[in-house]
Simulated assay, not measured.
Amino acid sequence: MIDYWKETAAAVTVCDKNGVVVYCNNRSAEQFAKYGDLLGKNLKDCHNSSSWEKICNLMEPGDSNIYTVEKRGVKKLIHQMPWRKDGEVKGLIEISFELPADMPHFVRE
């Protein structure tokens, strides 16, 4: 299967139900390089207790969490969502990407 996410500008990180990273694309690896190779690592080791609690709370009911954040003048959209197999939540996918400062907004009907 082709890894469509491997070389995209969005950082894509996937963990299993226990928080163990099972996939990260090139941008995710660059973004989180200070933690070393994420594959096989638990997200609990990379987050404070409050963030880890939010991650766990997302997986139980299978909710999504979408927000923007700004770090060092760069605004990003973060979308954390469950991934499922046969209807059962098996973990989370996080996709984050930079938002242009002058991004247009359209309302369509």
Rank of each mutant, 00 (worst) to 15 (best):
W83G: 00
V107D: 07
M103L: 10
L39F: 04
G73K: 06
S50M: 11
I78G: 01
Y67L: 03
V21S: 06
S96K: 05
I78H: 06
F97N: 09
K90Q: 15
D86Y: 03
G73H: 02
I55R: 01
I93H: 12
L92F: 07
K85Y: 13
D37F: 10
V69D: 03
K17M: 15
W83K: 00
Y23T: 01
N57R: 12
L38P: 06
I93P: 09
R27E: 13
L43D: 04
Y67F: 12
K34T: 12
Y23F: 14
L43Q: 11
D102F: 10
E70K: 06
E98Q: 12
N26C: 09
E60N: 00
N26A: 14
N48L: 01
V107M: 04
L92P: 01
S96P: 04
C15H: 12
Q31D: 12
S51M: 11
N57W: 01
E98G: 05
V107N: 06
L77Y: 04
E98K: 08
K17P: 09
N48Y: 00
K54G: 14
C56P: 02
A11M: 11
P104L: 14
P61N: 11
D37M: 08
C46N: 07
D63S: 15
S64D: 10
D45I: 07
K54R: 13
W83I: 00
A11Y: 01
F32M: 10
W52F: 15
Q31M: 14
L58V: 00
E98C: 07
D86S: 07
Y35K: 00
N26H: 13
L39W: 06
Y35F: 15
V21P: 04
N48V: 02
A29N: 08
I93A: 14
L58K: 02
S51Y: 05
K17T: 11
L38D: 06
K85C: 09
N57M: 13
K71I: 07
S28I: 08
M59P: 00
V12L: 14
V74Q: 10
D16N: 12
R27G: 02
K54E: 14
T68W: 04
A10L: 06
W52D: 00
K54Y: 10
L39V: 09
P104W: 11
V22I: 14
T13Q: 06
E60W: 00
W83M: 00
I55D: 08
A29V: 03
D86R: 05
L39M: 09
G87W: 01
L38N: 04
Y23I: 02
V89Y: 00
R84G: 03
T13I: 15
K44C: 03
T8N: 04
G87F: 03
C24H: 09
G36P: 03
P61R: 08
K34E: 14
I95C: 12
N65F: 12
V20P: 05
L92N: 08
C46I: 11
A101S: 09
D37T: 13
K75I: 03
S50K: 13
M59C: 02
D45Q: 10
D102A: 15
V89G: 03
L99R: 01
K44Y: 02
P100A: 15
R27Y: 05
E70Y: 07
V107K: 09
V21Y: 10
T13P: 05
T13E: 10
T68N: 10
W83L: 01
K44E: 00
R72T: 05
K75H: 04
V12F: 12
D63F: 13
I55K: 03
F97W: 07
K41F: 07
E98V: 12
K85P: 06
D86L: 08
P104E: 13
V22W: 01
